[in-house]
Amino acid sequence: METLNDNCVKGKRILLLYARFFGYDVIVKNKLESLGAEVDLYDARANINTVEKAIKKIDSRFYYKKQRKFHKNIILNTRNNQYDFIFSNENIARETLMDYKKAFLNAMLVLYLDDSVENMKGVNENFDIYDRVLTFDRKDAQDYGVIFRPLFFCDTFKKLHEEKIQENNDICFIGTCHSDRLFVIDQIMMRYPKLKYFLYCYLQSWFMYYYYRLRDPAYKSKSKNFFVYKQMTMDMVGAYMAESRAILDIQHPKQTGLTMRTIETLGLGKKIITTNKDIVNYDYYNPNNVLVIDRNNPIVNEEFINSPYHPIDAELYYKYSIEGWIEEVFGE
């Protein structure tokens, strides 16, 4: 399969309520529009400052009120539009979802989970409101009876794959430094000091650095300047990954679904070193391309890094592209 079914989104009007992360909201919007859809994009989450984030952790009622008002304004701004789809990747309150259904009677309400149910408290309690629920997590799809659809790689990675960029690094890590990611990175670098690394350990703010420093011993040996506090553009993410032989993926301990970074690695035609044991159950798994490590005792086979990548089947490659994702998410 080489081209998207034009009947899928061509001529459709879509409201995207997309929780913003590394520009994927804009990427999806632009791709949908290039395929003939008319798209209105809004952040699915009300903007809150650092102090408000702290308050939210203590009492979520504050955020609920702000979020409810935020979505009422979106409905007010778009109430005259006739949507075919309302898409969200965020855990939106039940009352707010009902507001959208009442305002846009003919729209299909679609939820795509790019995080595990366990990390999105109570999201499964609202599945009955949606017309279509999909998840990137294979286990959640089985447990909750929803559609299993992995994440996607965007065109940036496909183009870089075709260019065959020179590889200057052995291992590349780009991502938010949450959970035990810093510990795993430190263990690998300590055990394999001769390998060449590119690291981009992102934190949302200096506040988060000091917060983690108080709670996690791994942060005590790092200055705040070790981390970066600005999200990298998608083009830069792709460029740095393309210059590396293998990509390091450390999924959240509570998450079993494959991360976006994992799928982007597939798009680039790169090897992946991952803590996610569930990857062996995916249709593109090949031990020549995928090395599963223990997050508590990460062992990296250097022969794996230096051996050639084995290309996957063209149909599978399409499946994990953004076009393949759109076809499943918005298809009949």
Rank of each mutant, 00 (worst) to 15 (best):
M1N: 09
E2T: 02
K10N: 15
I14G: 05
I14F: 08
Y24W: 08
V28S: 03
L32D: 12
L35F: 02
G36C: 08
V39Y: 11
D43V: 07
N47Q: 04
I48P: 02
K53V: 12
I58E: 11
F62D: 00
Y64S: 04
K69G: 04
K72P: 01
R79N: 14
R79V: 14
Y83M: 11
F85K: 14
S88D: 05
A93M: 10
L97F: 04
D99L: 12
Y100T: 13
F104S: 09
V110E: 13
Y112M: 09
S116V: 15
V117T: 14
N119E: 03
M120C: 13
V123S: 14
V123T: 14
N126A: 11
D137A: 06
I147S: 15
F153I: 08
D155I: 05
F157W: 08
N169A: 04
I171D: 07
I171L: 12
F173I: 06
S179I: 07
V184C: 15
I185G: 12
I188C: 06
L195T: 15
L203V: 01
Q204K: 11
F207R: 15
Y209L: 13
Y210C: 12
R213G: 02
P217T: 13
A218H: 09
S221V: 05
G238F: 03
E243D: 10
A246I: 01
A246W: 01
D249A: 03
H252T: 10
H252M: 00
L266Y: 01
G269M: 02
K270Y: 02
I272D: 07
I272W: 09
I273W: 13
D278P: 09
V292K: 01
R295A: 15
N297A: 13
I299A: 05
S307P: 11
I312N: 10
I312H: 07
D313V: 05
A314C: 03
L316N: 09
Y317Q: 04
Y320M: 08
E327S: 06
E332C: 12
